[in-house]
Design a protein around this nucleic acid. Structure first.
Length: 566
RNA sequence: UGCUCCGUGGUGUAAUUGGCAACACGUCUGACUCUGGAUCAGAAAAGUCCAGGUUCGAGCCCUGGCGGAGCAACCA
């Protein structure tokens, strides 16, 4: 019974969204000849973030699932705001997510000629006019949501005059802002967007693709639906704030239609995430103000930031699948995103040993010059990932947090007279330790090991409560590890009276130097992902080099011990 | 004093033609464990914004409230 209305995902039912239901129904009714064709229309004025991923997954996902196509279309109708540098990153991010538009890469600017002709057509039909008034006057006449607008004195200009003026606007004869072309609809319409919207304005800045060819540029409302129409789009999916634009979308489409084909705009809720901001403007501010190190700072919710942080496309897609598409403006808990990466990385990330805050342990009864190899399983979740050997010797590093002089009962790690297992190796017992009396810092811990407890040995069945990760001092490689926390310390930093800057988390980046990693990590390459055993998931940063390996923490492991201490 | 959209556990989503409000995250137990991870078992947690109405029966349909969001860029 569920086959039609749900789909399977690893045993979990993913409900069909209202949009998917509409698509199913449209297909069933044979609308637009039973075709589905979507588009993803980014404006090239910033980097894509996870909110865009939500749109991308819908646009490409629906087309893929129902045998249709999805175009990539750069919405470049405003030459002063858009930059070519963003275009490559947008392409790269969509591909990284695993979607492809084949040869269907378009630009709104591809249609400037057709749009211009359509404007001429509207003028000829008495449906558009040139208004000579300044912008503040036009705005004033528009009225307000509660007040109807009044008509422009130029509204009934004859078509010939409009035609002449519009052509001269495009020839650069008039200054920017001196004249606009408006659709003649209804100044009293309760929907502000229908009150003779401006459809063309004069901009003299060169366009990144069309250069100086045009002096007039179409507004969003005059471009988007028409581009959809030109491309044969059937379902134009966008976010909720465009809901009130839909009547305009339909108005223009009506004027364009020559057959039963018609594109349809459907709106869904945009993505909001706790403890972060998802507006291009604010993200740009964070970059410009140096609050982060760039668009791809691993704390950024941008796709390039998440990628650098170690997120997988699969985790992002899974997250998006879980939150769904509705018409309710929701705020999604970031812990759901974190859950999605953990779930994914748990299956695929090899386990390695890395000590972030090293404390030296000396095994006093282990021969000074000896080194032996112990075998470690690469991933207990996936046997096919095999195993590797790592060196064990007399002097080791363990995590500083894994030792306490005077521990509480529930502390299962190393402490005076207590025993723990060194994972993959031996059980050791703490005999004594050396402490710097002036600083209070523990400098070395002295232990003995039991040679009979080697992992895998028949007589190694002795039970201990704790297992620690470790790295051999002589073989360790030094690394820098960057630990990230949420960028903001308020769930909803932009929904408050105070400016969102006030909620920036000053501890969102912690740089740890002198971390000690197992030697196999020397060959790791940027973006390689690992689980540092008992700590979390980490990936190699672009800044990494042979001499100075750098790792980013993607997300910590669930940590019931630290939870217990609170 | 307008128009449009939206109100289901803490959070996000389900609930087919009106039929015992379900799933996930999070939280809390317990089991297991050479990762205090993972896994497994279980628990707490909403009676569906409110008030009426229709109906044998309403989260779903109707009416009226209340609450939230969007809309007054020559931005998209």
């Amino acid at each position: 019974m569920n086959d039609e209305n749900t789909r399977e995902n690893e045993g979990t039912k993913i409900p069909v969204s209202f949009i998917e239901q509409i698509i199913i129904d449209d297909l069933k009714e044979g609308r637009n000849n039973g075709r589905i064709h979507t588009r993803f229309p980014p404006e090239p004025n910033g980097y894509l973030h996870i909110g865009h991923a939500k749109a991308i997954c819908l646009d490409f996902g629906m087309a893929e699932k129902y045998g249709g196509k999805c175009n990539l279309r750069f919405d470049d109708t405003n030459p002063v705001k858009e930059e070519i540098e963003y275009i490559d990153s947008i392409r790269e991010d969509i591909h990284w997510l695993g979607f492809d538009w084949e040869d269907r890469e378009y630009f709104a600017s591809d249609y400037f000629g057709k749009l211009y002709d359509f404007a001429i057509d509207l003028i000829n039909r008495g449906l558009a006019y040139v208004d000579d008034q300044p912008s503040d006057l036009i705005a004033q006449q528009k009225g307000s949501p509660t007040q109807p607008g009044i008509e422009s004195p130029f509204r009934n200009r004859p078509p010939d005059e409009n035609l002449d003026l519009f052509r001269r606007m495009n020839e650069g004869e008039f200054d920017e802002g001196s004249r606009v072309l408006r659709a003649k609809i209804d100044m009293k319409n309760p929907n502000m967007h229908m009150r003779d919207p401006i459809i063309y304005r004069i901009i003299k800045a060169p366009h990144h693709r069309t250069g100086n060819k045009w002096k007039v540029y179409p507004m969003y409302d005059f471009a988007h639906g028409q581009c959809d129409f030109f491309e044969g789009i059937t379902h134009s999916l966008c976010t909720l704030e465009f809901e009130v634009h839909r009547p305009l979308y339909d108005w223009f489409t009506d004027k364009l239609m020559t057959s039963s084909y018609r594109p349809r705009q459907i709106e869904f809720n945009r993505l909001n995430l706790t403890y972060t901001v998802l507006s291009k403007r604010k993200l740009l501010e964070l970059v410009r103000e140096g609050k982060v190190r760039g668009w791809d700072d691993p704390r950024m919710p941008t796709l390039c930031g998440l990628r650098r942080r170690g997120y997988t496309p699969e985790a992002i897609k899974r997250f998006i699948e879980m939150i769904g598409y509705t018409k309710f403006e929701a705020i999604n808990d970031i812990s759901l995103l974190e859950h999605a990466v953990r779930e994914d990385l748990n299956m695929r990330a090899p386990r390695v040993f890395g000590v972030l805050k090293p404390l030296k342990v000396i095994i006093t009864n282990y021969p000074e010059e000896k080194t032996e190899e112990v075998t470690i399983i690469n991933n207990p979740e996936d046997e096919s990932m095999g195993s590797r050997n790592i060196p064990f010797s007399r002097e080791l590093y363990i995590e500083r947090d894994d030792f306490m002089e005077d521990p509480p009962n529930k502390f299962f790690r190393l402490a005076p007279d207590r025993e723990v297992r060194l994972k993959g190796a031996f059980i050791i017992k703490c005999e004594s330790y050396r402490k710097n009396e002036t600083t209070g810092i523990i400098e070395e811990v002295y232990c003995t090991y039991d040679p009979d407890t080697r992992s895998g040995a028949n007589n190694s069945q002795k039970k201990v409560k704790g297992t620690l990760h470790w790295v051999s001092v002589r073989h360790a490689i030094d690394a820098e590890v960057r630990i990230y926390d949420r960028l903001f310390n308020h769930e909803d930093p932009t929904g408050q009276k105070d400016d969102y800057h006030k909620f920036l988390n000053s501890d969102s980046l912690q740089i740890l130097k002198g971390c000690k990693l197992e030697p196999s990590l020397r060959s790791a390459r940027p973006l390689d992902r690992f689980q540092f055993q008992r700590l979390g998931y980490f990936c190699v940063d672009y800044d990494s080099s042979e001499d100075n390996p750098v790792f980013n923490q993607t997300v910590s492991l669930r940590d019931s011990w630290s939870k217990m201490r609170k």
